[in-house]
Design a protein around this nucleic acid. Structure first.
Lengths: 189, 189
DNA sequence: GTCTATACATCGATAGAC
DNA sequence: GTCTATCGATGTATAGAC
């Protein structure tokens, strides 16, 4: 509901109705709307985290670091596009949260997930599989951002998680250029 | 203000205060909060559009399609990260808008900007500069999404637009891998 | 643990003087 | 064109019965 309606516009009455209780009853479980939202965000990110870890582990010990990275991209795409409702909600409403709530969420909940990704990237670099002239933290944020933003895509542009992930992986790993148009790019700015 | 506080939490009182008038006076210029927001979104996207077009035109006629694409990425990064306040607001609040407002904005305002980008990409493909096995619309949304999401980056991860754009361009154009780890990736999913 | 009822605050919008 | 004053709606939060 938060994913569809947004943080502020989602009323406790609606949430209660969906849970088949009355609005007042929610206060037996939560102190406020904010603690309810915070709990949802926490659970959501945890589920996403688990989903991604499961996908990576499924590859087994022999997988290369880049293969593991690709699996993570697939899994995150699944989470944000369809598999985990909470993840879409996370992506949609982080920008709408009251300041303290957002900061706490980023600091407490998002940090470990970011570290998982940073680990994937630095493993790949350590294995010599990705170049060492790119800022990995920025790269991670760009990758996750491109996937998270799918929640804003117009309906007609929607694609399956597999499709989106494959395109992103192909572009990232192989590059989008045909020959070596790449060099002249580096010169810019 | 919308960029920082969000759509719902930004009060007309605050806006009026920043404009050095009283809240009631705003209604001399706008019929409602929504028309005010709609106008801001329209102007914002227009400014971004112009900023990007200017950057592309500055390259002159001899520039390759990929060079033009790179310039567009730089310019959009500038717009969303620092240059155009409106752009950050756009990125931040599209997900928070009431349904009809958002739909109209995407349909009326965002469409032309999306077409500019699709043009850049299809020109590059026509020139044989980028591969022809990637869905260009999806690629465009992934690129813009990765940049738009920078508004959600934690403060400590913030980078200059040049830095962010260069990393994205390097990754996209050259690929992030060192050798041909790429091939085995394509096999996944 | 869930309900009904209601207090309380907030904020968009309107009215009307100047 | 800008102000002050206020209405009216909405929605979170609380009180208290069952």
């Amino acid at each position: 509901m938060f994913s569809e309606t947004g943080y502020a516009a989602t009323r406790l009455t609606d949430i209660a109705e969906a849970a088949d209780v009355k609005q007042g009853s929610l206060y037996y479980y939560f102190d406020s709307k904010d603690t309810l939202v915070a709990e949802m965000l926490r659970v959501g990110l945890q589920k996403t985290h688990e989903h991604v870890v499961t996908a990576i582990d499924a590859l087994g010990d022999q997988a290369t670091a880049t293969a593991r990275l690709a699996a993570a991209i697939h899994a995150h795409a699944e989470a944000v596009i369809e598999a985990v409702d909470y993840t879409a909600a996370n992506a949609r409403i982080v920008g709408q949260l009251p300041d303290e709530l957002r900061k706490r969420h980023i600091r407490v909940d998002q940090r470990p997930y970011g570290q998982l990704w940073d680990g994937l990237l630095s493993d790949a670099r350590a294995a010599g599989e990705i170049r060492d002239d790119l800022d990995l933290q920025t790269l991670r944020l760009l990758i996750l951002g491109s996937l998270n933003w799918t929640v804003e895509w117009p309906d007609r542009a929607k694609r399956s998680p597999e499709r989106v992930a494959n395109i992103l992986i192909a572009a990232l790993f192989d590059g989008i250029t045909t020959g070596d148009h790449s060099v002249q790019m580096q010169a810019g700015a």
